[in-house]
Simulated scan of single mutants.
Amino acid sequence: MSSARLTRRRVMGAGLGALASAMAGACTACSRNSGPARRLLLATGPEGGPYNAFGTALAQAVGASGSRLRIVPVSTSASVDNLHELDAGSVDLALAMADVAEDAALGREPFARPTAVTALARVYVNYTHLLAPSDGPVRSVGDLAGRPVAAGAAGSGVQVVAGRVLREAGLGDGPSPARERQLGLAESARALREGAVDALFWSGGVPTPALTALSRGLGLRFVPLDGYVGPLRERYGPVYTAVTIPAGAYGLAEPVGTLGVANYLLARTDVPQAAVRELLTVVFDRWGDLLREVTAGARLEPRFAISTGRVPLHGGAVAYYRSVYG
């Protein structure tokens, strides 16, 4: 998706329900906090996806807190799209995968120049999934040579990490590249079920509900990706980590090593420090509610939240962490 400014219809369609919930929750606090409200647009992801779920939960939590802030989640294609929207001034806040956020901060492809972006917190870790039918031919990344693979929607962080894994495996170009198809999660699952693709990439929490549903009707093989952690860290830095999809998730009999990528809550540099501090107060008070629908067992801790690599913390975030944690 391009970085064109958001239309009124897009904002209202994506955020009206969450804004209504936020306003309703805030009404009980009107007598406690009579200052003017500040509305912040938050670029999330596709409707039904984890970023959208997090954004909706955050809007509701902020509304119920009595804060003067009003968070309006905006549906997007996710990470890459979100950074373009943030850079264009179309939104105030965004969620994005750490590798894409660093690409934006450094002006690295797919961004033509450095973007003035700041981090509020590292909120949770995505697990990169590479799934194929258990009775199919794909047992390793190399087996994708010449085969169709769902590699994430255009403008998503999934597309970035999938492309990097494929290039590292020598399948980004050359005589027999993987045939990447730009599909979102729901479309990817449907294409795999119908045999239109031989595998799908996804980056998200564990378990991802759509993949749990897919596993109930289709025998799946989870292809290990931990062998790509070292090469990708050498090329792109420590935004990539080794993680394990545990036994039991999706009915797995054994754990599967894969590639982890953190997710950041980001802001434009001109968002007021006071607004950032108010927002982070809610995030840390209600992190359990915010992460419940995103990834099982995740915790939000300050020592990890401030680890945002080469994306600098917003001044308001620095002030918040110093005031609360010293």
Rank of each mutant, 00 (worst) to 15 (best):
S2G: 15
A4Y: 15
A4D: 15
A18S: 10
A22I: 14
M23R: 06
A24D: 10
T28Y: 03
P36R: 11
G48P: 03
G49I: 10
Y51P: 01
G55R: 06
L58K: 03
G63M: 13
A64I: 12
S65G: 04
S65K: 07
S67P: 10
V72H: 03
S75M: 09
T76C: 05
V80C: 09
D81A: 08
L83Y: 02
L83K: 00
E85Y: 15
D92Q: 09
A94D: 04
L95D: 04
A96G: 07
A96W: 11
A98V: 06
D103M: 13
R108F: 13
R113M: 10
L120W: 14
R122G: 03
Y124T: 12
T128L: 15
P133Y: 08
G136L: 04
V138N: 03
D143K: 00
P148K: 03
A154N: 05
V165N: 02
E168A: 06
G170F: 13
L171K: 03
P175M: 11
A178L: 13
R181M: 04
R181I: 09
A189K: 06
G195H: 07
F201G: 00
W202M: 02
W202L: 06
G204R: 01
G205P: 00
A213V: 12
L218F: 00
G219V: 09
F222S: 02
F222A: 00
D226K: 07
R233E: 14
E234T: 08
Y236W: 14
P246I: 14
N263W: 07
L265Y: 09
A267R: 07
D270C: 10
D270L: 11
Q273P: 04
R277K: 02
L280K: 02
V294R: 05
A296P: 02
L300E: 01
P302S: 05
F304R: 01
V318W: 05
R322A: 03
V324R: 07
